[in-house]
Amino acid sequence: MDATARRIRAASSGTTPADGGAGQPVISCTNIARTFGTGAQAVVAVYNVTLTVAGNARAALTGPSGSGKSTLLHLFAGLESPSAGELRWPALGGHPLDEPGRVGMIFQGPSLLPALTVAENVILPLQLAGADLASARQASENALAVLGIAELASSLPEEISGGQAQRVAIARAVASGPSLILADEPTGQLDRATASLVMDVLLQACDALGAALIVSTHDPLIAGRLPQRWEMSDGTLADRLGPSSIGAPR
């Protein structure tokens, strides 16, 4: 895992990787679909999505509940496989689950491991990716410092507030120096002020890492913080707003 270790060192020292990712797209998908169940009960969650995500994308994925936002993000994160169509990660060089640390996922609800401290929560995925403890610890300290929650390092998740937990989840996602950050309703449980703060740190972190960012949300204010907006409806991309140079259809 030399590459991962290198990235983590790069992330922990705060330098931006030189390639920036603008060259190769992070995601490229053609007519992907995802259905659950079979026969009459089959539910089509994502349908006919064709899309390219450039290395410096900043996109909001909007749409009503049940329109397929979460499923699309899970597909992008490699947590689910498309039922049809082609899905590739050109900048990653392989499937995200084979390249741990290259995609950072932030979930809507509380997703910290309750039995681990904040610092351990951030360190663990780095260790899972094969980093040695010392560099993982360094990366974790830096990430927590960047997000302004260094003093929470030894707290347990149950001892911190929802807003703080969401920041820890962001620290966990950025600590490995990913090329793509996916955030599923990261502010759904937060009040407006905290939500705005979380978006600030998320954008800062992506800028620092040179990572692409996709945020799903139904809050127009949050969507407004991002230059692109992809509207989903009934499992498919309905509309694309904003400059087309970043997320252009193939």
């Binding site: 749409g63 009503p64 509940s65 759904g188 449980q189």
Partner: peptide
């Protein structure tokens, strides 16, 4: 309405 979209 925490988990609902605008229309709902």
């Amino acid at each position: 309405t925490g988990e609902l979209d605008h229309a709902t």
